[in-house]
Amino acid sequence: MSQSACLIVLLLSSCASGLYPTAHNVSWKSTNFKTVLSWEPKPSSEYSYSVEFSQVGKDKQRTPHCIRSTSTVCDLSGSLTNLTACYTADVLSEPPLGATSDLTEFPHTSSPRFCPYKDTDIGKPDFEIQMNKDQRKITLNVTDPLTALFKNGRQLTIRDVFTDKLQYRVTYRKNKSSGKKVVESKSSVIEVTGLDAEESYCFSVQVFLPSRVEKQLGEMSLTKCSTTDNHSIIKEYSLVVIAGAVLFVVLVTGIIIAVAVICYKQRSKGLKGGRKAVPLQGV
């Protein structure tokens, strides 16, 4: 190719890039298999974005809601159907919807590789505390988090996806104590044993996926604490408070008794004085 021809190609490429700026900061964000591709910048009225994605080693595909769009995000949750495969995506800068261009190849930016099964973050679970008659044991009933995936019209949970590889890690401590203990379970019904009777305990739960190399732990749940109605009054209140309360009751009782005695004596004196003042009636 001659120097003049190379110069023309470079000029055309420069014009194309100037008219359709390439996207940057292309990244994946995925939680519980809700997977979104995002990038920058927001396009002007002169161009738009389209997204092409592909399973590694296979043909590229497009999803209808991410073609010639002015958005800078593309939800690919329902398109990445093979969860154990890895994917890449290209963000193409193209003419706006309804416009045409003489270009046959548009500027694009490729994403990092994304593997849903290994890379999606796991959100925090919810759970309920079940008190047992045996005060040394508490049962936690964990609700498996829902995913963004559906099968036969049913929304799948993370247990549907990870099956027997799913575990839960429970972190617990005595209420108002900083010392922590950890227990792990493959079940969503978790028994925590060896507790001190008549003590309140606080629990947090998170998903644990030991089969993963990275991102083994999910987001920590909210902390919930058990309640007990069997605390002794000495545990609930200090000895000083108890002594003060007893002293107050004794003092109030003494005042009531003293007032009652004084009133009784005054009434007795009044009755005796009244009898002396009444003259004897003749027979």
Rank of each mutant, 00 (worst) to 15 (best):
M1N: 10
S4I: 08
S4M: 05
I8Q: 06
V9I: 07
S13R: 14
T22H: 08
T22C: 12
A23K: 03
N25M: 04
S27F: 08
L37M: 01
W39R: 02
W39Q: 04
K42P: 04
E46D: 11
S48G: 07
V56N: 13
V56A: 09
K58M: 10
K58Q: 14
S71R: 05
V73C: 00
V73E: 02
D75E: 09
D75F: 00
S77K: 00
T81L: 13
Y87W: 03
S110T: 15
C115Q: 05
Y117Q: 12
D119F: 01
T120R: 01
G123D: 03
P125Y: 00
I129R: 09
N132T: 04
D134K: 15
Q135E: 14
T139M: 04
N141H: 07
T143N: 13
K151T: 08
N152L: 07
Q155C: 04
L156E: 09
I158R: 00
R159T: 08
D160F: 11
V161T: 13
F162V: 04
D164E: 14
Q167D: 09
Y168F: 15
Y172F: 14
N175K: 15
S178W: 04
G179Q: 11
K180W: 02
K181P: 00
V189G: 06
V189D: 06
I190M: 00
L195T: 01
L195A: 01
V205N: 12
Q206D: 12
F208Y: 15
K215H: 13
K215T: 07
E219D: 10
E219W: 03
S221I: 02
S221V: 03
S221M: 08
L222T: 13
L222Q: 11
T223F: 05
S226I: 00
T228C: 06
T228E: 06
H231M: 13
I233C: 12
S238F: 07
L247Q: 10
V259A: 10
I262T: 09
Y264V: 08
Y264S: 15
K265Q: 13
Q266K: 15
Q266G: 12
L271V: 14
G273K: 14
V278Y: 13
P279F: 07
Q281P: 01
G282A: 10
V283Y: 10
